[in-house]
Each structure stands twice: as structure tokens, then as C-alpha cells.
Design a protein around this nucleic acid. Structure first.
Lengths: 244, 244
DNA sequence: CGCGAAGTTTGCGCCAGAGCAAAAAACCAC
DNA sequence: GTGGTTTTTTGCTCTGGCGCAAACTTCGCG
């Protein structure tokens, strides 16, 4: 049986919270305490929207613990997952890119602890704290790179390669070492994976089954462990024979 | 017969060049002259790379005239067009996002006139010229939005809708009013369009033929004119019967 | 422990659109 | 004009993976 996942506890707001986070890492303790004094902290259950696409961008956030899923919903109700945000990153920073509304919906992919500040403090932080802006834009640059890669993948790769790619990205960003391999550190369904790779939950299920037979992954309900990452790399390069 | 397209002439470097361009629009003439003094200007033929993916990001650019196509090339040699940049925008601004190499290749989609500065001036411009940074990041924000939309489209729409969408985007961004409709303002092949929509030139050709029969578009070699934009909107919403 | 809900697996038929091939048309340089 | 190259069109075949349906498994909860 799986060990029950302990409920995330509300952290005390002290400066050790933010010190490891890149946008704040160069600051003095005193400055971090100032920033914390202005923040609100909240715990979210899994699957809850922190903010929704189109809503006025009134706050920006930092993810202290857990995972955030950035998604868009089409007029016909289909969901597309754009990316996952690991803890330690800012999100909802629409303001920094000159937007007045959020361009996508942010949903917790696991339980999560989130700090939030009113958007009007953004310019203040940028002006006041050295490196804050540049570190943030570095993150933005990374996300652009990821999106670009996504586009190229979707344009040129087969479903099997796309799913393999997504799995690898997930274990790189959010992988946790476990007994028999590396497990994705938050609950994820076949449906989720299909929304990340532009396919259907049926096809994802078939692929995972096939891979499981080959010993590449092990999975249970809402959990996926990659047991043979190297093999998965071959698959996503198209260097392994198709698994169906 | 098509009127021969006049060769773009090398502009004189005076401040009227940059005044209409957003990142510089709030500056005084004196400041703009400073900026121009530091720039090099070059004319590119159609289909020439301004910089290539992976190369060290040594310069950043502004497109004065013409169109730039941002693309990536996969290990297997397939090309994917990420977006088109219209004149008046900065590009190759990897530095601003904390990157030391260019994340994609920029190729001229038409003849083009391009200003370039050494990257070390970037921080100087940001520090020295008010609004320069924020206007730039606004552009970045727009491009992120576009990429996001692209991802959603590719994930949820049929080929016909994607191509229709791309055409609409092109005539919005780069359309030129002509006698019988709106023409895309630079030479574009079926192949190009297929690389923008993750399909094949064959499928694009079939679609354009069908649309031409219905009076939605008119096309000749490397030129596409949309004669019935409203109809095209219906098609990309999936509200018109499939054209095949 | 038993029930219902949520998530997963699997089978089967079908079709959008890719892949291949070949011809036609448009354009260019000389 | 002529010859050669690039781009476009069109026909045909074949298949990856979607859509639908139904059974099965796992989990949470009273």
C-alpha cells in the first residue's frame, strides 16, 4: 500500500522560506523580511484554481511547495496543459509582461503552499531589489524555450515520442527518487498526460501499458514511476521500435 | 502580370526611423540619434538567416522594414516556423531573457532592412532609456500569448482550422489591402504555410484550391490574397462545412 | 464492508491526413 | 523564345491514432 501523503503544514513566515528562491536569493535577511510582511500565504488543495484565465491580474504569486499546472480551456471545453511550475518559482506575473489580465488558468496539481502579493508591489520590488527583475526574466526565458520546444514536438513527433518526452520532462522537473526508479512527485492521471501531449487518455493508457510490459515504467492510479529513463530517451528520439 | 517588387532602398539613418517604434517612441530626438550612432544597418535579401539557433547571442536587432520568420530546425531536418515578426519590433533579444545563445533561427521572409546593436549595449539602453525595458517586455508578453494560442490550436483543432487561423493571423499582422481583398505582404509558399501549421504542403495546397473554388482566397505563386475574411473566420471556428 | 465515483484498460471500426508519385504550371536567366 | 528550376496541383494508398463502447480496478466514504 502507498504511504498516506501527509497534509502539507502551513509554514511559519520566516526568511529561510525565501532565501533559496532565485528571485530573492541575493537579498539580505532584512529585505526578505520586508517582502514577507507584505505577502499573504495560503494552502490550496489539489485541483484548485489559484487564478483563472481572463481575470484581472491583481496579484502575483510564488509557489513555496507543491506543483502548479498552467492550462487553457478552449471554447469547446477542452483543456490543454501548457506547462508545470515547480516550487520556488514566481507565477501569475502577467504584469511584468504588460498584461492586465491573466493569460491562462493556474491550477494546483498537488497540495500547494502559495505566497501572494498585490500586483502594485511588482514595480516596487523591481525597483527596490537588485536582481529581482533579471532573475524573473530568466524564468520567463526558460518558459518561452519550453513552449517553443512543445510546438516543435507537436509539429514533428508522433504521439509515442511526445508522451515519452513529457514524461522525461516531468521526472526532470519534478521527479522524486524511489525504490524502483524515479516517480513523478504529484498525482497525475492518463487524462492529464493526454492534455499535455495533445492526444487522448486512451492512447496514453495503451502506451503506458505497453511500456510497463517492457519494464520502462511502472504505474498505478494517478502515479507514474519511470524505471528505465535511458530507454525512454531512446523512445522519444524515435530510436526504439514503436511500442504498439 | 505582377508588378515587379521594387528593391528596398537603404534608408538614411535619421531619427524619423525609430520614432514610430514602440521601444523608442517616448524618447527625445537627441536620444534617438545617440542610439542610431551605435547601430549598424543592413539590407538582407529574402530567405537569408540573420542569426542561427545556438549561436552566441552577440547582437540584438530591430526590424525596420520587411518581415522576419522565427524558426527551428529539428535534428531530422524538418523546419517549424514559430512566428513572424512585423517591422518595428525588436528581435534577437535573448539577452533580456537571460540567455547567452539564440534559441531559434531568424530568417528574412522578404527583403528586409535591419538595425543591429552589440548585446553589451542592452543593459545600457535599459538603464538609460525610460520605457525601453517595459515596452520590450510587452512585446515578449504578446509573443508568449501567441505561442500559447498556437499550442492550444495544434492540440485541439483540425488542419483546416489551423491553416485558416494562420492565414487570418498573417493578414492581420502583415496584410496589405489590394484590389480584390487583403494580401499577405511577403512571398509565402504552401510549404511555408505547412511549416506554420504542422501539416504538409500537399494538404495546404488542397485546402487553398478548395477555398479558391469557394471564393474565399485567391492565390498565385508565393502570394496569397484573402478575398472573404469573414468566411475564413467561420472556417477557423469550425462553423463552416469542411472544404474537402 | 459495501457502494458509488473516479480512473484505467482494452477491443474494434473508421477516417483525416500523411506519404508517395507524377504531371502541370509558373517563373527565371540567358 | 528556350531550357531548367521551383512551386503547385492532383490522384491514390495506407495507417496512426481517435471515437465509441464496455468492462474492470482502485479508492474514498458512510
Amino acid at each position: 500500500m502507498s504511504a498516506p501523503i501527509p497534509r502539507k503544514t502551513m509554514p511559519r513566515l520566516d526568511e529561510s522560506l525565501l532565501t533559496p528562491m532565485p528571485p530573492f536569493s541575493r537579498l539580505e535577511k532584512r529585505q526578505i523580511r520586508e517582502i514577507l510582511d507584505l505577502a499573504s500565504v495560503r494552502r490550496f488543495d489539489e485541483g484548485v484554481a489559484v487564478f483563472e484565465e481572463g481575470a484581472p491580474a491583481e496579484r502575483f504569486y510564488m509557489l513555496l511547495d507543491g506543483y502548479i499546472r498552467v492550462m487553457r480551456i478552449t471554447p469547446t471545453g477542452e483543456q490543454v496543459i501548457a506547462l508545470h511550475i515547480p516550487s520556488g518559482q514566481l507565477f501569475g506575473i502577467a504584469q511584468a509582461l504588460g498584461r492586465t489580465t491573466y493569460p491562462a488558468t493556474s491550477v494546483t496539481a498537488s497540495e500547494a503552499i502559495v505566497l501572494g502579493w498585490p500586483m502594485r508591489l511588482w514595480d516596487q520590488f523591481v525597483a527596490q531589489y537588485d536582481g529581482f527583475a533579471s532573475e524573473t526574466y530568466k524564468t520567463v526565458g526558460q518558459r518561452i524555450g519550453e513552449m517553443n520546444t512543445r510546438i516543435v514536438e507537436m509539429a514533428t513527433q508522433q504521439v509515442e515520442q511526445r508522451v515519452a518526452n513529457s514524461l522525461l520532462r516531468l521526472i526532470n522537473q519534478t521527479g522524486r527518487k524511489v525504490e524502483n526508479g524515479i516517480e513523478i512527485d504529484f498525482p497525475i492521471t492518463r487524462q492529464d498526460l493526454s492534455e499535455m501531449t495533445a492526444t487522448t487518455l486512451h492512447t496514453v493508457s495503451r502506451l503506458l501499458s505497453a511500456w510497463e510490459k517492457q519494464g520502462v515504467v511502472a504505474s498505478r492510479r494517478k502515479r507514474i514511476t519511470v524505471t528505465d529513463p535511458h530507454r525512454l530517451v531512446l523512445i522519444c528520439r524515435g530510436e526504439a521500435p514503436p511500442s504498439r
